[in-house]
Structure formats: structure tokens, C-alpha cells
């Protein structure tokens, strides 16, 4: 059934023809240009523009062709009634139930086949176990051990002439660059420290060190505002107060950065007294 056959005249069709030919010519030129540019090893912009010209003008040409020169009648079609008729449904049910009855007589076979399929399904899920090591030992693995020497990313021992306000990323000797043990070392005025109880003697000469991994989402806590002794994570702007033991004071982090207990040995080298005060990194389902 035609509702509204379009009534464009001959002039309209001629204009459409001219425009379509023009668009397809530009498309052709674009395609040729692309090939030439490609063989001449021209830059991304030249390649992209010529390719875009070829593709888009081909598209416009087709649409103008369709609009101006192809039949544009509006038609009306019938929609199917989607639900099947009751007879069809009943016929299907009868056929299906008949098949089912035949299986039901061999119930034992059915149970065995079903059980095997179920077992295989569970078995295939257990393949996931092959995908990884057990996580908890990795997450709780000590990053620092007693007497490890504090070194820079380049592997050199940290010089103890670090000044008040300086900050440097450090690692245990032999593990420079490792993720879990990355630590920030700063020097602050020892008298201004208000650390939690039990951390006496962790900050020789004002050297103080924390895990560099944000307890919120695992980004490196990379910025230090030395005037106010705040550490800032650039990802979600969590801030930690160095003087109180890197307690979170702003942003979405909820737990302090784990602190690394330090001492200075007889040769003047900075060393760890032991591991971080808690597991470094973002939080997970674990005993606190």
C-alpha cells in the first residue's frame, strides 16, 4: 500500500544526478590521493584526510543517489502476530513431552549423563585455579626484611645528608624498581613528629619512610608538600600527614600508609629494622 509517493520533478532528479557524480568523483580523487600518499610515505594527516575524503564522499554520493534517483515510496507492511497460536503451542508441547517420556523411562541413564555434565562443568571452573598463585601469601609477603640497606632507584645507598624537606623513592638493596617494596623517604624535624605509640626509634635523625603505594587505589603517592608535610596521591588526591605517621587527612583514602622502621648502622647507612607496619598496597578482605 503506497501512502505518499514522492512528487519531485525532473529538475530535482537532474540536480541529484550532478551532485552524486560530483561526490563520487571527489571520492575517486581521494582514493587515488590516498594511494599516492601511502607510497610516498606521507604523514598521518595526509593519509587520514585523503582516506576520509574517499570514504565520506562515497557515502554522500550513495545517499544522494538513493534520495534523488531511487524510488522513494512510503510503504506499509503487515506485522506478524508474535505469539504462536494455541494449536501450535499444544502440538509442540505434545511432541516435546513425548520425547521426554522416552528418556524418563531410562531415568538412571539420564541421571548419569546429567551428573557427568555437571561434574565436567564444575571441573572446568576449577581450571581457574591454574590461572594464578594463591593471592594471600603474595599480598602478605614481606617487602622489607631486617637489616636491608635502603637504596635509590639506581641501586645506590641513600646518602644521609638528605635535607629537611627532601623526598626520594627508595627500595631494599637488590630489589630496586620492585612494586611492593617501593618506599618514600623524607627527612623531617624529629621534634614535630606525633607518631602512634610503639613507633619510638623508627625515625633516626628525622628520617621517615612510608610505603609509596596509596592505600586507596594503588597509585604511587608521588607528591610532597614539604611546608605542611603532606603527601598527595595524584590519582584521586588522597592526602596523608607525614608527621602523624601518614594518617589520611583528605581525599578518599581510609587507611594510613604503612610505615617502614629505620635505623642508621655504624657505617652511617640507612637500614630497615624490619617490614612495613602493615601490608602495603590497596585494601582487601583481610584481618586487620
Amino acid at each position: 500500500m503506497n501512502l505518499s509517493p514522492p512528487q519531485e520533478g525532473r529538475g530535482y532528479r537532474r540536480h541529484a544526478m550532478i551532485l552524486a557524480v560530483l561526490a563520487l568523483l571527489i571520492a575517486l580523487a581521494g582514493g587515488v590521493a590516498f594511494l599516492i600518499f601511502f607510497w610516498e610515505k606521507r604523514g598521518t594527516a595526509a593519509l587520514g584526510v585523503s582516506l576520509a575524503l574517499a570514504l565520506a564522499c562515497l557515502g554522500f554520493g550513495l545517499i544522494i543517489w538513493a534520495h534523488g534517483l531511487m524510488p522513494r515510496e512510503e510503504v506499509s507492511g503487515e506485522r506478524d502476530l508474535l505469539p504462536s497460536s494455541e494449536e501450535e503451542r499444544k502440538a509442540f508441547r505434545d511432541d516435546f513431552v513425548q520425547g521426554e517420556n522416552k528418556i524418563a523411562r531410562r531415568q538412571v541413564l539420564g541421571w548419569m549423563a546429567g551428573g557427568t555434565v555437571g561434574l565436567l562443568a564444575v571441573g572446568s571452573v576449577s581450571l581457574l585455579r591454574s590461572m594464578t598463585r594463591s593471592p594471600l601469601p603474595v599480598l602478605f609477603q614481606p617487602a622489607w626484611r631486617k637489616d636491608m640497606i635502603v637504596v635509590t632507584a639506581g641501586g645506590k645507598p641513600v646518602s644521609t645528608d638528605l635535607q629537611d624537606g627532601d623526598i626520594v623513592t627508595v627500595f631494599p638493596e637488590g630489589h630496586a624498581g620492585s612494586t611492593a617494596s617501593q618506599t618514600i623517604l623524607m627527612r623531617v624535624d624529629e621534634k614535630s613528629l606525633r607518631l602512634p605509640p610503639g613507633r619510638e626509634g623508627w625515625t633516626p635523625q628525622g628520617f621517615i619512610a612510608f610505603s609509596k603505594i596509596c592505600t586507596h587505589a594503588g597509585c604511587p603517592v608521588a607528591q610532597y608538600e614539604k611546608n605542611i608535610n603532606l603527601l598527595l596521591c595524584p590519582c584521586h588526591q588522597s592526602t596523608f600527614d607525614v608527621l602523624t605517621g601518614a594518617q589520611p587527612v583528605g581525599g578518599p583514602a581510609g587507611r594510613p600508609l604503612p610505615q617502614l622502621p629505620l635505623y642508621i648502622d655504624s657505617r652511617g647507612l640507612l637500614r630497615a629494622q624490619g617490614n612495613f607496619s602493615s601490608a602495603p598496597g590497596p585494601g582487601f578482605w583481610s584481618e586487620l
Binding site: A52, A56, G59, L62, I63, W65, A66, M70, E73, G77
Partner: peptide
């Protein structure tokens, strides 16, 4: 019970193909 529009062939198909080239051109 009734749908109104254009037939797939040829007009709608040509327009659709045209749109494909315009999208990839963009």
C-alpha cells in the same frame, strides 16, 4: 499491526551503505 517505512531494496540499502562510508570516513 502495520509498519510504515521504505523497502530495504534499493533505497534503504543504498542509504545504509552510504551511512557506513560516512561513519568510516569520520
Amino acid at each position: 499491526t502495520r509498519i510504515v517505512g521504505s523497502r530495504l531494496w534499493p533505497t534503504y540499502a543504498a542509504k545504509s551503505l552510504g551511512l557506513f562510508f560516512i561513519v568510516s570516513g569520520a
